[in-house]
Design a protein around this nucleic acid. Structure first.
Length: 618
RNA sequence: GGACCCGUAGCUCAGCCAGGAUAGAGCGCUGGCCUUCGGAGCCAGUGGUCCCGGGUUCGAAUCCCGGCGGGUCCGCCA
């Protein structure tokens, strides 16, 4: 039950008759004043021209109201608030369910199965998982999916490299995705250098830049070679023997798309090795998926072909650079753009339908996948957690869906975009093997946590949960659309602004309650003890239902982080000043126990929707 | 060149979408607090042209327009 909402209603009801303004208009303008002038506030100019009035009201949840300049400030009756809040207090306090649950697909992470997950993926993982948890807690039906990108050129390139090596098995002492990543990067860089050298032979144009670029690539190649000289040299040798590697890769894509049984078995085997590695990394962060969708299944099922057929029938079809494409720009009017979230002035590039060799392209496969996500879960809404770099392709996707006759799907497809992650200035490239893997990050944070726990004489059993909290907090506390600079020393700083700080605060609250003998009775509480810190804590607890609901409805997990940190600050300040269990007065002790229970519950529920485990010992 | 994102304290960021009172945290720096429920804590101090210039408004960090700086994208890659 949202008692604070009741208080606001009471305030609005009174002012409604006084100002002759509709109640819900007032309700929508009530805010929390920044300073200690009251608990709730209505700026008069937002609802009326009549500023010069006097208010005199004393009611149930609202103790008093008075005008202060252009504001009407109200003071809450903390005793009534306390009684109402705790007379109906449950373990799931604040996790308010929506009236009309919806069916929502969240697709996230979906990393290419060709190299280990790195820090860029980590942001995707953490955002996607928190959104899923938030929406579930809000009462929606949520389906979490991982798109396995096994249909493109990148996997084909990896398989090409593995083919040159005679399809080796990964050595037992190395993580499979890491091993694949090295082979992929080696293959890619050898081919890049080869292609560049060819260009240098045939053209004078941009000679100097190309030489410089080649030198850069050679330097990267040398670094890669150090990882495993035998494999690198063998790969380079075998690729050199190859007359036309690009044709080989193209052939691979064709036979895989065509469903060649031998190729299928090989590709699936290695792709699944990569996925095994992913899941091993992700399980440490408590991330799981309901479905893994292989691109190739869409191809083999004919769903991609169906899309192509209808695209070929479309009046937007054009001939583009020697192949077929859809002209998205001229077939979307301003209204359509508005509906599917494409800026009016943006020139949206045509959607190329197939490669000249007949093989399929990512965005086209993604159209089939989008339709599949909607239909297989009967989804009202699909949220794709994808980096901002893919803004334009995601727009092309929505535009195409609109043009091909799926306007509703285009409208309900949400691109949840997030900014770049950089690691202390270093730029990452999976294709070149330049990245810091998620496992490395995890290990680094973990070793710092171990050292700290030992220093403090804490328990070792929850180290993994502290690492998870530190990582999630660091990535979630920055709004998704902002770029993030991931800095290990900041992530491993567990002072006030951190996940472990919240866990620590939780443990404090929990352990007070754990030592409790007997059950406190609400009617024994001394309401006049609710002053200063305690009053602030009470009001803060009462805000949780509102914070949670709006965080979930606006897809803003960071709002919960900010709120929990403020609550933890309030609690810790008070904790240092006053006792709970040692308090002599029974009435005061009872009041305080209820407040601690409130804090404990709110932090537990808040952390839970963020995927952070509340610890009772650390 | 065009489009999109970002610009708030020395550093990292909340607040901006739904305008409201004297702009908030953490780190850093200075100085204090361990006989009491867990010091990963608490208290005090330090620190701001909210990138700049216009406009709208009773009121702008927040909305609009124009700049500046940084990033991203503009592929028959994903």
């Amino acid at each position: 039950m949202d008692v604070l909402a009741e208080a606001k209603k009471e305030m609005a009801r009174q002012l409604s008759s006084l100002l002759n303004v509709r109640e819900n208009i007032i309700l929508g303008n009530i805010e929390y004043p920044p300073r200690e002038v009251g608990d709730l506030s209505l700026p008069l100019p937002s609802v009326t021209r009549n500023f010069n009035l006097e208010v005199n009201y004393s009611g149930k949840l609202i103790r008093s109201m008075k005008r202060d300049g252009i504001f009407i400030n109200a003071e809450l009756n903390e005793g009534e608030l306390f009684t109402q809040l705790f007379s109906n207090f449950t373990d799931d306090f604040g996790l308010v369910k929506v009236d009309q649950p919806r069916r929502i697909v969240v697709e996230h992470t979906s990393a290419n199965p060709i190299h280990p997950l790195h820090i860029g993926h980590l942001r995707n993982v953490v955002i996607g998982d928190s959104l899923s948890r938030l929406l579930k807690s809000r009462g929606h039906q949520v389906n979490v999916r991982f798109y396995v990108n096994d249909g493109g050129r990148q996997v084909a390139l990896l398989i090409y490299g593995l083919h040159k090596l005679g399809y080796p098995e990964p050595p037992p002492n190395i993580k499979k995705d890491l091993w694949l990543g090295t082979i992929y990067a080696m293959t890619n860089i050898i081919l890049e250098i080869r292609n560049l050298s060819k260009e240098l032979e045939s053209t004078e144009e941009g000679y100097k830049e190309k030489i410089e670029k080649r030198d850069e690539l050679v330097a990267i190649a040398e670094e890669l070679r150090e990882k495993d000289e035998k494999i690198f040299d063998l790969l380079a040798e075998e690729i050199r023997k190859d007359e036309d590697p690009e044709a080989e890769i193209s052939k691979l894509i064709k036979s895989y798309e065509g469903g060649d049984e031998k190729v299928k078995a090989i590709v699936r085997k290695y792709v699944n090795y990569a996925l095994e590695g992913f899941m091993e990394s992700l399980s440490k962060l408590h991330v799981s998926f309901d479905n893994f969708d292989y691109e190739s299944d869409l191809l083999w099922s004919g769903k991609v072909k169906d899309i192509l057929y209808s695209a070929f029938e479309s009046r937007a079809k054009i001939n583009y650079k020697g192949t077929w494409a859809l002209d998205l720009d001229d077939f979307l009017d301003d209204e359509a753009r508005e509906q599917v979230g494409i800026p009016k002035d943006l020139e949206i590039p045509p959607l190329v339908l197939t490669r000249s060799d007949g093989t399929s392209l990512y965005t086209v496969r993604d159209i089939a996948y989008t339709l599949y996500k909607f239909s297989s879960f009967k989804a009202d809404k699909v949220i794709n957690v994808i980096a901002e770099q893919q803004l334009v392709p995601q727009m092309q996707l929505r535009a195409t869906l609109y043009i091909l006759g799926f306007p509703e799907i285009a409208k309900n497809l949400v691109h949840y975009s997030y900014g770049m992650v950089s690691l202390q200035g270093m730029k990452m490239s999976g294709r070149r093997g330049q990245y810091v893997s998620l496992d490395e990050i995890y290990e680094k944070v973990s070793s710092v946590v171990k050292t700290k726990v030992k220093e403090k004489g804490g328990v070792l059993e929850n180290i993994d949960e502290i690492v998870n909290a530190a990582i999630r907090y660091a990535l979630l506390s920055v709004s998704a659309n902002k770029p993030v600079s991931f800095n290990i020393s900041r992530v491993t700083n567990f002072e006030e602004n951190s996940g472990p700080y919240l866990q620590y605060t939780y443990a404090r609250a929990y352990n007070i309650l754990a030592k409790l003998e007997g059950k406190p009775k609400l009617e024994n509480a001394n309401l006049s003890d609710i002053v200063e810190d305690k009053r602030k804590i009470l009001i803060s607890i009462a805000k949780f239902p509102e914070v949670f609901s709006s965080s979930a409805d606006n897809l803003q997990p960071e709002a919960i982080i900010v709120y929990l940190r403020k609550l933890a600050d309030l609690f810790n300040s008070w904790y240092d000043r006053e006792r709970v269990l040692q308090e002599k007065d029974d009435g005061n002790r009872t009041t305080r126990i209820f407040l601690v229970k409130g804090v404990e519950t709110v932090i537990r529920n808040g952390l839970d929707v963020l995927g952070i485990v509340s610890l009772t010992k650390m």
